[in-house]
Computed example of a mutant assay.
Amino acid sequence: MFFRKQQKNKVRKHSIDIILTDFDEVLWIFIIDKVVIEDDNNIIFHLKDRTKIKQEII
Rank of each mutant, 00 (worst) to 15 (best):
I58H: 09
F2S: 14
K13V: 00
V11C: 14
V26N: 15
I16M: 08
K8S: 04
D49E: 02
F2R: 08
M1L: 05
V11W: 06
R4S: 11
D39H: 03
I37W: 08
F45H: 01
D24P: 01
D22V: 06
Q7V: 12
Q55R: 08
T21C: 00
T51Y: 02
I44Y: 03
D17N: 13
I37H: 14
I19H: 11
I16A: 12
F23G: 05
N41T: 15
W28I: 00
F2V: 11
F23P: 04
I32Y: 03
I31C: 15
I19V: 05
E25Y: 04
I57S: 01
I37D: 14
R4D: 15
I44F: 14
K34Y: 10
D22L: 06
M1C: 11
N9Q: 12
D33M: 02
I18Y: 01
R50V: 04
L47M: 07
D24A: 00
K10H: 08
I37Q: 07
V35K: 11
I57G: 00
I31D: 11
V36I: 10
K54Q: 03
K48G: 00
H46Y: 13
I16C: 06
K34W: 10
D17H: 08
K13Y: 00
K34M: 05
K13P: 00
Q55E: 13
R50H: 11
I29Q: 13
R50S: 15
R50N: 13
I19M: 15
E25Q: 11
K52W: 01
